[in-house]
């Protein structure tokens, strides 16, 4: 497992789309460093041949048949939208 120093706060803040102040970056780096140091202990566990557990219980093929049910009326759908126009959500210009 990698050392806590590997935590690249700028890279992560960028991926997570969080604008952080330098003060926040320092604070979080320190605090997360402690936590990453704490989880280092998992290195001690022998996990050879162990299946990773993605779900609390292993169940397969949970689906519904293909039938359409009514959705939200457009006014309900957009009732919490910060900005809307012509029944669509307005976002600032998307730069590719």
């Amino acid at each position: 497992m990698s050392a806590d120093s590997d935590l690249n706060i700028d890279y992560l803040a960028n991926l997570a789309r969080l604008a952080l102040t330098d003060a926040e970056k320092q604070k979080f780096s320190r605090q997360l460093g402690d936590i990453l140091h704490y989880v280092e202990k998992l290195k001690q566990v022998d996990v050879t041949g162990v299946e990773p557990m993605a779900h609390a219980s292993p169940v397969f093929n949970v689906w519904q048949e293909d039938a359409a049910r009514p959705g939200l009326p457009v006014d309900e759908a957009l009732r919490n939208a910060p900005a809307q126009r012509q029944h669509m959500v307005v976002v600032p210009k998307v730069v590719e």
Partner: peptide
């Protein structure tokens, strides 16, 4: 070609009025 969407049962389709084929899952 399905009647409803991949992960929720609201109708899938083309050329419908804006944001009328939505539900809590789609949004």
């Amino acid at each position: 070609r399905t009647v409803s969407k991949m992960f929720t049962r609201v109708a899938a389709g083309y050329g419908q009025p804006e944001n009328t084929l939505v539900d809590p899952v789609v949004l």
